[in-house]
Nucleic acid binder design. Structure first.
Lengths: 213, 213
DNA sequence: CGCTTCTTTGAGAATACTCAAAGAGCGTGG
DNA sequence: CCACGCTCTTTGAGTATTCTCAAAGAAGCG
């Protein structure tokens, strides 16, 4: 997970990350109001995180792929404010927060890394709010695809071809759109030669044009 | 700022908060890409924080009233990812981050408080995304007013009557709506007897009904 | 291989937006 | 202190984007 830590710190982290956990497709790693005890890092598979309104409305607030952190929302109140659901059979590293906290007190770099993770999440959510607040349906889907592409690339996968494990409905729930609208936008991108969607398999043909949308 | 710190820690914090700064209405406390050096706490007045897209689009991601923190976005990259603009002549406490960080290494409670602040911001933004992604214009304005009311109450002001320092346009920019839509929703709430808006002075008449919207 | 779930597409409806103009409020300067 | 001008707010009318409802087609799973 931590790209900017030295070998020493990584070994220290290994002493804390004693266990991994398997989560089956559709199951929850944690739910809203669960007691917060650990941070997690996706090891294999993928997750969505959702917040639920009392009336049952859901908002997907993020998708996590291997290497990305989960659970930072729980630090402030001691209970989780969202829930993390596996999009496919997945495994996570468990990082017990109490132990991680001790490690942070010993290692300034580890401490900085935790700050980095939390602040990054704040910045990520800010740009998501920008998307939800100012963009058209077309722009939202374009920026979603480009963001995913960049993250896959950053983790060593192809940024041009990847598999969407989430449904159109989940994408819509993330982008503040209905599933039909998401589907129509995919069709439009396909018609315009920007993207080649074969079901869940996505091939980004013209990233430049996507960025200009 | 910190509600859960002891007298000792508050005195320690006082040694770090050496200076305050005045910011005139319309001026920036910090701008996007400014080097991050300090956290701030609003002392008097109020601010908006905005993120800017390259094409000039703006999204207001928060309004800050006295007692609330500013600048947490800068921790991860060392530069600010948003800008903070004063909505009226205001003052802030300056908390140099390097010194605050040292203090956190000495005091576990101070450390926890920083975690708390960052994680709270993550949770706050999550619920904002829920609003932007799932709510109608009417519901957005209602939840905005109730949120503000709760925050004023938490800081010891009246939750039923308060002054909106931000314009209809800024509210719209925060709620993902146009200023005309915001104005229409105010008119509707007025017509229905939920809110008594006298220009920028807001009187919440029926908070229960607002919550049911 | 059949059933269920997901996706696509169409048609019509609703919400929010755009453009426009009048009215109110605020700050500034005489 | 009042008047002027500017900005902000309100309201209306028409438009556009997205949503809703519906149905057919495709894909995935057991």
């Amino acid at each position: 997970m931590p790209a900017d830590l030295s070998g020493i710190e990584l070994r220290q982290l290994d002493t804390v990350v004693l266990t991994t956990r398997h989560v089956r497709r559709g199951e929850a790693l944690f739910r809203t109001h669960d007691v917060f005890q650990s941070l997690y890092a996706v090891r294999t598979g993928s997750f969505k995180t959702i917040v639920m309104h009392r009336d049952g409305r859901e908002q997907v607030i993020g998708f996590q792929i291997p290497g990305e952190p989960l659970g930072l929302d729980g630090v402030c109140s001691g209970t989780h404010s969202c829930e993390a659901i596996a999009l496919e059979d997945s495994t996570v590293c468990i990082i017990p927060f109490a132990q991680f906290e001790s490690l942070c007190r010993e290692s300034r770099r580890m401490q900085r890394h935790l700050y980095y993770l939390m602040s990054s999440e704040i910045v990520r959510e800010s740009s998501l709010m920008m998307m939800l607040g100012t963009m058209t349906a077309e722009q939202r889907l374009a920026s979603f695809l480009l963001d995913l592409a960049a993250r896959f690339r950053a983790r060593g996968y192809s940024g041009a071809k990847f598999n969407l494990k989430m449904s159109r409905e989940e994408i819509g729930c993330y982008l503040g759109l209905k599933l039909e609208t998401v589907s129509r936008m995919f069709s439009r991108f396909h018609r315009d030669g920007l993207v080649e969607p074969k079901g869940k398999q996505i091939h980004i043909v013209d990233a430049q044009a996507l960025a200009r949308v």
